[in-house]
Design a protein around this nucleic acid. Structure first.
Ligand code: SF4
Ligand code: SF4
Lengths: 161, 161
DNA sequence: ATATTATGGATATCAAAGGTCTTTATTAAC
DNA sequence: GTTAATAAAGACCTTTGATATCCATAATAT
């Protein structure tokens, strides 16, 4: 249960793009040098980000990447979901076991009344809650907020001396 | 970014143990049949849980497993950390890159004053926050709470008809 | 003693992450 | 138009980790 290196790279790339908004179109060469990751591999990641509308890309001379929208509208959750995929945090593997009947079909009379037969699983419900808590937090963290904090600390440190 | 099947199995095993507190010592055979998982594999998982003090085990005739402490003191976080390990959700892979200097060493004068040079990384700080949010939620979810909910739903369904 | 049960190690299998290389398509500049 | 620069996409490889099985060993009740 850990985020992949690709997510790491994607986040750092976006932070660099956000910090280079002056001269648009940052090339893969620059990103690669900045992060210390091979151009080949990093370009794969950038392509993913482009397909998902996080960045724009233009090929050719003086081409490169730029953020597709303001940095304060690119959340950590956005990035993580692009790179890691949108699968659920927990996916039941054996819903046909005997266990299942106890936890998800307990009330044999509770079936028809109102709601049909949604996800009544109690374990999944807990895990779904965990997912939502995590996502809610990650939705509030943006590329811009990291840049702001870096800037804030910089000036604050300067003032202090 | 998904919990492993092992975590799934571990949780279901513990739920079953918690539900069978009457007749102590549930054998691996019973657990295996209940979950539909091979005895070999499941026993590995149970061993892990035992080494970490989640369950007790006794070998020999009429041996088996039982919860090592009350079900309301076994949290989802406990189980997840035993099975998935205690690694951090995000671990920086290239803290020697140029990027790093911008984000973690920005204030060149902020070094000595008070705190030495702790984890000043802004990205890790965000991810650590995510981890704490997730963990806090998972700490509140116990094996017992799942059982309670199952029981509650059962009786409620019975009353309704 | 013997049957039963958990433990630990060795090993096999498979999918995914991580990474490289080559070819193609697109653009700017000459 | 030609050319150089650049991103995109696909084929490939390697390493790692999850999943899973089997067997030999230790412990326990009868
Ligand atoms: S109770 Fe939920 S998690 Fe367990 S087997 Fe049924 S659906 Fe899956
Ligand atoms: S800024 Fe943080 S995450 Fe980025 S390279 Fe430095 S330590 Fe790692």
């Amino acid at each position: 249960m850990q985020f992949s290196k690709s997510t790491d790279y994607a986040l750092h790339s976006l932070i660099h793009l956000g910090n280079s908004e002056r001269c648009n179109n940052v090339g893969i060469k620059e990103l690669s040098a900045e992060l210390g990751v091979s151009e080949s591999y990093l370009s794969k990641i950038m392509s993913k980000l482009r397909r998902d509308g996080i960045v724009r890309a233009v090929p050719g001379v003086n081409g490169g990447y730029e953020l597709a929208r303001p940095a304060d509208q690119i959340t950590f959750l956005d990035v993580i979901q692009v790179i890691e995929g949108r699968q659920k945090l927990f996916e039941c593997s054996n819903s046909s076991s005997r266990q299942h009947r106890l936890l998800a079909e307990e009330g044999p009379a509770l079936r028809d009344p109102k709601r049909p037969e949604k996800n009544d699983c109690l374990v999944e419900k807990v895990m779904y809650g965990a997912e939502q808590h995590l996502y809610q937090y990650l939705r509030e963290q943006t590329v811009q907020s990291v840049l702001d904090n870096a800037f804030k600390r910089c000036t604050h440190g300067a003032n202090k001396n």
